[in-house]
Design a protein around this nucleic acid. Structure first.
Lengths: 309, 309
DNA sequence: CATCTCCATGGGCAAATGCTCATACATGGC
DNA sequence: GCCATGTATGAGCATTTGCCCATGGAGATG
């Protein structure tokens, strides 16, 4: 076994002794022959690495109720509501569960993934999984402005945990010009991946607000000026880079024509699940639902209550 | 919703905020509008009620290795080894997982259950489950000497968690005489249940030692004198009341002829899984394996190492 | 109506935990 | 060979947690 493997095993064992066997860190330290601090560190690492899975085996009445009302109210095919918490830990868990349950299915299927912090947090909560029968495909470009792989693209995090063929979109997130975007999309390799996204059985996406602190700006994909222009054109949010207005109508202008994402797959054939919560995204989520850009949603009670108002 | 339901919901929510959202008890207390101590109590209750499920998402190399060696060495069909811990929390978890995975299967099947503390601890770790397609049947009598239902019979605990038709064996654990035992077993209702046990797809049993502190004695089903007589006849352990010697051969004498349990189902057609660990049971487990009384085993590393010696 | 019993509540304290910091140790570059 | 850089370790301390116990209120009982 490799050195890293041993270390991982130790970490997992410490976590096991702590959480499953219920030992104190002193006891763990004694049993494993390390100091109390080291035992503490190992347990903390196991948690940070997502080795420790906790679930509360109880359906929350209010969450189920909100989810049911959302499904009826906005015509969602699938909806899940988790208790609100500032850190969004619940969202990440629910998202991880949902992705896992799709990838555990037998039949070969295509799962498409957008980008963003919410999605990434979800993927980080996932278990390791073998599913060579499936294909995983990216909905957004995977190259940052500086040529590196875009940090918040989830495809690479996902590949670390899941053994499936994965197909990144080897393009910048936003092309530098409309012409470049068209040239890139015309490349056979890229065209094939984009076509694949349209056959996805399920697509997981985030919803971005278009305020001055929009993720697109923070990550340097678009400038503050550009986002301001978008807002003036009525944009309230974006999904995989595609901006939409308060009625959920996709916008087209010079910026959006440079977005190098695949189109959002058809809601007829694909379950498009958005994971989004929080005050800043309220308007964007509502608009996306209004425009029928989604047919699946993972959110929290606080946001669900807003959406039902 | 009922008052108990509300309280349960609160308890689950507190546990959720603690374990999933990672809040401190002070934060939970503030959010739920209760005192810090109350929050602590709710979290503790949730754990005690088994609402909180923790699993470490990492295969332990040594456990997998020991399990594989046990399978090969003693010809087990199925074997699982968990890390040793004094409280047996690992055993309970593994047992719960195993029972759940059987009950989650589609096809209708019969699952048979023995009795004992180990089994009970496992059942207490199980999630709630709907499986009306299955039948659950008891391998041992369910009536204690005083006429009450035997505490450690797992069937009733199981019914609280699982919606399946369940068939207790409405007999004393040990009949007062050989004649009574025969008379009871001849009753149509009881005979039907016993026949059902023989058609079980899977049977979960514990293994009892026959020392002076044997569960059978502690629970008052047999006297110390009787157990001593059994030991003198060569008994080293018992499964659902059926005592066996060091070679795993079932013993017959005046006591065993009064045991009102169903026969251990055939290992040809049924997966008979024993869950047992600990110094006191070492000899009994080894004997049961030697005599081929089992074809499945859940144990811990310490016991597995003993069995492989 | 008085009293008793049970149980939930919060105070207080000891144990357990999480975290920071200074130090030791290893690893690799020059 | 020497130094720089990064990483692991244990001491110390503040925070968090678990638990015992005294208190008080609700409902039962006479």
């Amino acid at each position: 076994m490799t050195v890293e493997g041993r270390k991982l095993d130790q970490i997992a064992r410490a976590a096991w002794l702590s959480f499953v066997a219920g030992l104190t860190q002193d006891e763990i330290a004694a049993q494993m022959g390390v100091s109390r601090q080291t035992a503490q560190r190992m347990v903390a690492q196991a948690q940070a690495m997502g080795l420790v899975k906790v679930r509360i085996d109880h359906p929350f009445a209010d969450c189920l109720d909100l989810a049911a009302r959302l499904r009826r109210h906005v015509g969602l095919t699938w909806c899940e509501v988790v208790p609100s918490d500032a850190r969004g830990a619940g969202m990440a868990n629910a998202l991880a569960d949902s992705i896992e349950s799709w990838l555990r299915r037998d039949g070969p299927l295509i799962a498409a993934f957008g980008t963003g912090r919410t999605l990434r947090a979800g993927v980080e909560q996932m278990s390791r999984l073998d599913c060579d029968q499936h294909r995983i495909v990216s909905l957004t470009g995977n190259i940052a402005t500086d040529g590196s792989t875009a940090f918040y693209n989830v495809l690479f995090s996902l590949s670390e945990r899941v053994t499936a063929r994965s197909y990144p979109l080897l393009m910048p997130v936003v092309a530098s010009s409309v012409e470049e975007r068209q040239a890139l999309a015309a490349q056979p390799g890229i065209a094939r991946v984009i076509e694949m996204t349209q056959q996805a059985a399920v697509a997981f996406v985030g919803i971005g607000p278009v305020g001055d602190d929009a993720p697109l700006v923070l990550d340097g994909f678009v400038t503050e000026d550009e986002i301001r222009t978008l807002r003036q054109a009525g944009a309230v949010g974006e999904i995989t880079g595609w901006a939409f207005d308060a009625d959920g109508r996709l916008l087209r202008n010079q910026l959006t024509d440079r977005v190098a994402s695949a189109p959002i797959p058809s809601r007829e054939s694909t379950l498009v699940i958005a994971a989004a919560r929080g005050e800043a995204k309220h308007q964007a989520i509502r608009a996306a639902l209004k425009g029928g850009l989604l047919n699946g949603l993972i959110t929290d009670t606080e946001t669900a209550e807003f959406l039902l108002k």
